[in-house]
Each structure stands twice: as C-alpha cells, then as structure tokens.
C-alpha cells in the first residue's frame, strides 16, 4: 500500500444532486469515484494525484437499466454484473452483455460500472467497441442540465473526453435495432480471464443479396482511444462481399490501425490480429449469406 488514505478526502453526498452541486461549485476539483476498480489501484500504487474524491457508489439515481421501445438506457452506475444479468441487455444488446463478462473477474464486475469504464477512457476498455458498433449515445449531466452526444464523439484523445469539468456521465443509451444485424465481438487478451485486451474487434453488419448495406467496425487497443474504423468500413460499404473485398478490408484495417508496442503486446501483432479478426467476421457473414 503505497498511497496514504489521509492524504485524500472522500465524501459521499448520497444523491445525484449532492454530487452535481459539489462539482458545480468547484469544477474539476472533485474526482468522482464509483466502484473504485481503477482509482483504488492507483491509490495503492501511490499514483493517485487527485486529493478530493466524491463517491458515486450507492446513488440509486445512477444505477438503473430501463428499456424503452427502441433503446436501453443504462445508468452510469450500473455495474457490469447488472448488465450481464439483465434479460434485455442479453437479448437486445448481446455484444455489450458479452463484453460485460470480460471485465476482470466476478469481484470486479460487481463493482466496476459502465460509467467508470467509459470515463476512464482506456484504449483497451472492454465495453467500448461493443457500444461503438451499436451507435450508442452517452448522456451527460450537470447542474446546467443534461445533454446527449454520440458515444463515438465522447473520446477525444488518450484518456480525454468531451465532458466539461462540472459534468458527470449520467447514462448510456443503446439502440435495440442492432439486434437484427449480424454481430461480431472478440477479444484477444493476455489470458482467458482477468485479462487486459491486447486487441478487440466489434462489428455489426447488414447484407442484402450479398452486398454490404450497413457495417460498423470498432476496435480496442488499435489507437490511443477506443474508435470506429471508418476507413475500413468505407472499403466494404456497398460492396459485394467476397475474398477480394475481405482482403482489401483487411489491408485497409492494417493501414488505419495505429497501435503501439507496450508491455502487453506489439503494434505489429495487434494490427495483424485485428485484420485476422476482421477476416473471421467477414467470412462468417459470407457463410451466413450462403446459407439458404
């Protein structure tokens, strides 16, 4: 334990308004802490710079999963355990349900929140690719009110996001229409469980008569932030899927990817495996199309 608890202040206002008031009074001064699965690791390592922390844990207004006709609204305080156990998340946003099972272990899933995962903004975040390929939106809240932005514009750089210092992530909205799409999600981690992703790829697609009418692709750990692969998508859009299109898409992905070498993997490996995963997804589409 390298951190010193006494060097930090932690308060728990117990209500959303309480937290927002605090953040409005002193924007940027209070670091929100939900399940602590990131912040407490930094604390133990003596790397936690923020002196003032405000607890979001136990605020019921942030921990909800609500299904409306067209989408699921997930409160930022919903844990990954909440997500993976939820019937509609399982059926209507199955990629997200699958990603939820990837988070650390059972003990991490019962504390880690979707809000924390997104705000932390790791390029390797497990839930990000699934949300990106489903056109998810995030809803931000402050004393000034609420606003919704596409999740694809939430991350703005390495561990940077579009929130203002007085804002909190309130909810994530996941459209249900992608349940009709062909879907793909695969993570390549350091091991089967308790693994940080070396690379992950998510995809949703619609084909009509062998032609790609809609496709969304997103990856983890291929760039400084979780991101859609727009240029790769463009290669496929409107194309009849076949070996040549697949090969060109893979080449486009290898061009588009900007991974790094770090202690977990190499850039070359990440690019190539992402391309292989894309090949696996596209070949699955091809096989599914070929079926009567």
């Amino acid at each position: 334990m390298r951190g010193n608890a006494e060097a930090h202040e932690l308060i728990a206002p117990g209500s959303l308004t309480g937290v927002l008031e605090l953040m409005a009074r002193a924007p940027g001064e209070w670091m929100p802490i939900a399940g602590g699965t990131e912040i407490m690791v930094a604390h133990a390592a003596g790397r936690l710079r923020e002196k003032k922390l405000v607890s979001l844990w136990g605020i019921g207004e942030l921990r909800f999963i609500e299904v409306s006709g067209e989408s699921i609204a997930i409160g930022a305080g919903a844990t990954f355990r909440d997500l993976r156990m939820h019937d509609t998340v399982q059926s209507g946003a199955s990629l997200l349900a699958k990603a939820a099972t990837w988070i650390g272990s059972i003990a991490n899933q019962s504390r880690a929140t979707i809000g924390g995962n997104l705000v932390n903004g790791s390029p390797a975040a497990d839930s990000s690719p699934a949300l990106l390929v489903c056109d998810a939106e995030v809803e931000l809240i402050s004393m000034r009110g609420k606003r919704r932005i596409p999740y694809s514009s939430f991350h703005t750089g390495y561990k940077r996001n579009a929130m203002t210092p007085d804002e909190l992530l309130y909810a994530v909205h996941v459209p249900l229409r992608f349940a009709q799409h062909r879907q793909y999600l695969r993570k390549v981690g350091t091991r089967r469980a308790m693994a940080i992703s070396k690379v992950a790829l998510a995809g949703t697609a619609l084909l009509h008569g062998g032609v790609v009418s809609e496709i969304r692709l997103a990856a983890a750990s291929l760039a400084p932030l979780p991101a859609r692969l727009y240029r790769t998508e463009a290669v496929l859009h409107g194309r009849a899927l076949g070996p040549l299109a697949i090969r060109e898409a893979q080449e486009a992905l290898m061009e588009e990817a900007k991974p790094i070498d770090d202690i977990r993997s190499t850039a070359a490996y990440r690019s190539r495996v992402a391309a292989n995963l894309l090949g696996e997804f596209l070949n699955e589409l091809l096989t599914a199309e070929a079926r009567p």
Binding site: R191, R192, A193, A195, I263
Partner: peptide, 23 residues
Amino acid sequence: VVWKDGRMANNQMTNYIMPTAED
C-alpha cells in the same frame, strides 16, 4: 519478465501473467 534497462518493467500481477482457473 519484461526487462527495461536491467529492470523488471511489468512488476504487477496485472502485467505478469500467470494462468487463472480458466486457463
């Protein structure tokens, strides 16, 4: 063990990977 200038660079359980119950 990942070395950097004679030092172990991955000296955390998160980064020194041993098999889990699933592996």
